[in-house]
Structure formats: structure tokens, C-alpha cells
Write a protein that binds this DNA or RNA. Sequence first.
DNA 1: CTTGACGTTTACGTTAACGTAAACTATGTG
DNA 2: CACATAGTTTACGTTAACGTAAACGTCAAG
Lengths: 126, 126
Amino acid sequence: MQASYSIRDLAQEFDVTPRALRFYEEKGLLQPTRHKQSRSYSNADRTRLKLILRGKRLGLTLEESSDIILMYNPAGNRRQIQSLIDKIQEKKVQLLQQQEDLDSMLQDLNKSEQRCRAALRDNDKG
Amino acid sequence: MQASYSIRDLAQEFDVTPRALRFYEEKGLLQPTRHKQSRSYSNADRTRLKLILRGKRLGLTLEESSDIILMYNPAGNRRQIQSLIDKIQEKKVQLLQQQEDLDSMLQDLNKSEQRCRAALRDNDKG
DNA sequence: CTTGACGTTTACGTTAACGTAAACTATGTG
DNA sequence: CACATAGTTTACGTTAACGTAAACGTCAAG
């Protein structure tokens, strides 16, 4: 486990472009330090990048992923923390819906596959 | 269960705009008939719309949802059906990845929630 | 008959998430 | 020193998925 990564290191490891990393930084999702003008990414940045990409695979926007990352460190007064809990609940509801959708879509795909294989068998006989 | 729906019927039922339905039609995802110039949506259209929206909730593009809808009716020669099976497999792999991501994100959210509640308790005591 | 509710087409506008290109800097190598 | 390699900033381009507005058709109700 390294302590810091160049922009190309990180980009190659996660198969994204340097441009994307700069873009995420511009949006406040990554905070590399500057080492002689060049960007230097910490392990925390690397972790955040993983979370961003996981979010993307689930169809979240960068802003949504940003929100989720901010949920990791509950900060502020009671009201703010309570508001954070509410946002977490909402997200959980959304993810549970996604689980249902995922399951039903997988079932549909399996049925489609069955029909395909049946079609191939019919094709064999005829 | 009705036999046909006006554009507003369908839009209201699924909480989308008429504009969106016309857009989906333009992209070939819906095929309403014309009844006196106005669009008339069949139950098949209604079902396809459901699939489109499910896809959206999972972060799929319209084109991906379109592909999945086309998988329902295996047509063509052996080669085409085999290619369809391959595409189905790929989708399944992607969805299984999404399931993993979903589970880990849900776990993360639960942990975040715990930390929030702990922070509230600390706040109570201090 | 005209007003209103609903429909149509056409076309330009908008946002997210980068891609791409230009122009420049710094560094190590033959 | 020249050149390649990797970095930087700035800025305009691109695609998906509609939103929004204009301009028009149509039909039942007052």
C-alpha cells in the first residue's frame, strides 16, 4: 500500500483518464496535494475514488456519491447530524428499491435466456 | 386493465411527462398507434414503459433498456440468437457486479448511520 | 362562436460528465 | 542541447435525456 500516487498511477489502476481525476477534484470529490506543481493523491483520495466508481456503477451522479462520502464523517450540531441521518435513510430506501429492480431484471434475463436456448433447440430439430 | 391509454393517462400513471413518452417513441422504445392523430398506447407499450423506468432506476441508458426489451423475443437465425445469449450473459455479469456494489454501499450506509447515532448520544452526554 | 383542455410538430435550450485540443512547464536521457 | 515523457491550465466540443416554448389542430361546453 503506497502512501501517495501520481495522477497516472491512479488513473491506470482504476482505468479512468487523468482528465476524469482532475474533473472529480474540480467538483470537490478528491483533494490531492501539490508536490512541485504536480498532483499527489493520498490513500484517502484513492478510497474516495473507489467510492465514486462504485457509485457510478450503480447509476449515481457525482453529487450523490459526494453526499454519500460526506456521510462517512458525521459532523456538526444535533440538527445537522439528524438531517444526515434522514438523508441516509432516504438513500437506503432508494437502494432497497434498486435491489428489487435488480432481482426482477435478473429473473427476466434468465427467462429470456431460457427462451433463447429453447429457440436454438427448436432450430436444431426443424 | 384497460386496452389503450392516452398519452396523459400513461404519463400520469408513471409520473413522467408526455414529452418523455414522445421521446421514448422517437427512440423506438414505444410504438403507440394513431387514433385520429392522437397517440394510443397499448398494454404492451405500458409494459415496455415499466421496463424502461426500471432500467432508469438501475442507471441504465435508454439504449441499454431497449436492448433488454429486445431480448424478450428471441428472433433470427442461430447466429443471431447465439449473439443474443452472449449479450444476456454480459448483462447478467454487470447486474451481479451491481448487486455486490449495492450490498457494500448498504453496509457502508448502515455504518454511517451508527456513527451518526453515536455522535448524537455523545452530544447528549456532553 | 370562442374559450379551454388536450393533443400535435418543430426546434432550440439545458445539465452532467467528461473528451479533446492547444499551449505551456518541468525533468530526465542520449 | 535536443528531445521525449509526464505534468499543467484553459477552453471549447460532445452525448444523453429530456425541458421549454412557439405555433397550430380539435372538440365538447357555455
